[in-house]
Amino acid sequence: MIAEVSLIVAYTFIFGSMYLGIALGFTLTTGVLRVFNLAYGAIFLIAVYGTWMFWNDVGFGLIESIVLSIVLVSVFTYAVYRIVILKFAELEDYMLAALVAVFVIVEELIAYFYPEIVGVYIPTTIYGELVPFGEANIPGQYVVTAFVSLALLAIYLLFFTKTKNGFIMRAISQDMFASKLVGVNFNRTFALAMIIASIPPAIIMLLISPIWALNPYIGWSVFTIAILVAVLGGLGNLKGSIMAAYIIGFIQAFVGFLLDPRLMLLIALIVVMIVLIVRPKGLARAETIW
């Protein structure tokens, strides 16, 4: 029993932090830019399959491949902004449909070139040993991923709340017209903010990829977690996202170790639904990101 308690505590921290990292960019795009970027799910795929392509197929070194895949993620995000978000700015339902379509197209392309049977493995393990925690032993890579997530959260929070560019990025979505009026290049700033938000999911996905078995459809399950965290957190507020991430992390750890691992996502979804019935706007108010 003590071992289970250790496991649940440890994995609440691991899952919670990791989910925060996964959801960080999505929360920021909804909170700062007021765009429900449903193409976000494709970022997870482009990060790992991009790295795989540059490394395994093209023959670059691993580090170069990772850098190139992050460049690819940025280019993809910029294209999504120019081609979808800007075009459908006034037609929100069409925009959402188009964004999902973009995600599915990316997914299908990847599934075509790298079908499930092709084993994709990227050696991004930074620490492969087990880390003892109480009665439990946790894979070191999970611990690394959790701390990288928290570091990203801290960096992004400081950037958006304390720096000039962060302030400008938070202000642009409030009023496009007022932004142009004070000399802000709206399109460039918006695109830049979206690209900045696309980096954390790419990094976290690359870190988890050695632990999780990769397949072309993994984007959906990871993206579902990002949406759950953002929605439960109040769509855009980072305090809310932190609470939400650890609540979902706890539910998953609890269900995974005491009930049945196959129920982890289902029960998390049900609990989030119940919370949202009671508090439809999520745990925190989303007017501000902090």
């Binding site: 000039k164 302030f167 400008i168 202000a171 409030q174 009023d175 017209f177 007022a178 932004s179 009026l181 004070v182 000399g183 802000v184 007017e287």
Partner: peptide, 21 residues
Amino acid sequence: PRVIPNMTAHMNVLYAILGSE
């Protein structure tokens, strides 16, 4: 008047300063 209603008076002016050259 077209100011940003969800931002304070101070932030509205600050925004102009940050946006300017």
